[in-house]
Design a protein around this nucleic acid. Structure first.
Lengths: 155, 155
DNA sequence: TGACAATAAGTGTTACAACACATATATTCC
DNA sequence: GGAATATATGTGTTGTAACACTTATTGTCA
């Protein structure tokens, strides 16, 4: 088993604080899960960010969304949505059309191909989630969700 | 409050599964914490990955570590440690020296400046951790750590 | 011992992310 | 109604990450 930064720090002090230990565990766990999802997505030629955009656009339906709505809905800060959408448009996954009423806005919508792709990925992604987290029971998962939500939203 | 991918999915189905909900909460929370840490590091000119390397090398002490040992200890997969260390060497944070016994190996060590920097960052990073996670009590943090560890290491 | 495999590091290239800045359109408010 | 401000998107540039491939050195074993 490889020695990670977690072990490295544990032997040092052991940890500067519980908060630091929690953050490092969070980083490490997220990296492991993220790598699994990207391994699933890669054969389909989309990154995790692109996949998230596909899901966001599917949720928006036929009316589509403009750039800053997509940006705000993304899990991670992404300052260059324009060129992300450029690449997805080039791949035939989305279309963009300037709004007639407010010409500042550009509405992005899923193409049939984009819709088909995101639908096709539902199964494999769900399987990967199950593989990664299925060994925790519902009570543990709910506790995890509750604590993570609490981190982001101090009461 | 902005609508995030979390809300987007919640309204869709609400979630494909508890496992998916957990992973998305994990991604979102990690992104928030990571952004906070990078905001602290940025004025000092190091990225989060570089900071982790500094900590790893400090833990290794004077004997240093070779490239693949550093790579294995990193929290996230990082296929291009060579050029990461190139940049850190150029910044005067580390030195590299080819091992006399096994000339395939290149040993990397902290410079005095690198050591000073990582030491100086301990305080601000700990403060940021406290700011981000201080509203959880020890019991909650320990539960979080336990669950995250369980995700990575199925019993 | 000499061919072959294994290990460690480095390189070339492409794609992506980050940041600062620029452009176009709409809104406000005097 | 026109200047000033706000909003929305696009662009130029730089640095970093990802991937495939190459080189150098060591270990193995017929």
């Amino acid at each position: 088993m490889p020695t990670t930064l977690l072990d490295e720090l544990r032997q040092r002090t052991p940890f500067a604080s519980l908060a630091e230990e929690a953050h490092l565990n969070l980083s490490r766990t997220e990296a492991v899960l993220q790598e699994g999802i990207e391994r699933v997505l890669k054969p389909h030629g989309v990154s995790a960010t692109q996949y998230n955009v596909l899901r966001i656009l599917r949720g928006a339906g036929g009316k589509g969304l403009c750039r800053h709505e997509i940006r705000d809905r993304l899990l991670t800060r992404m300052p260059d949505v324009t060129r992300l959408l450029d690449r997805m448009e080039e791949a035939g996954l989305v279309t963009r059309e300037r709004d007639a009423a407010d010409r500042r806005l550009v509405t992005t919508r899923l193409t049939a191909r984009g819709r088909k792709l995101v639908d096709a990925l539902d199964g494999p992604v769900a399987e990967e989630h199950e593989r990664q987290l299925g060994h925790l029971d519902d009570k543990q998962l709910r506790t995890l969700v509750r604590l993570l939500t609490l981190v982001r939203h101090p009461e």
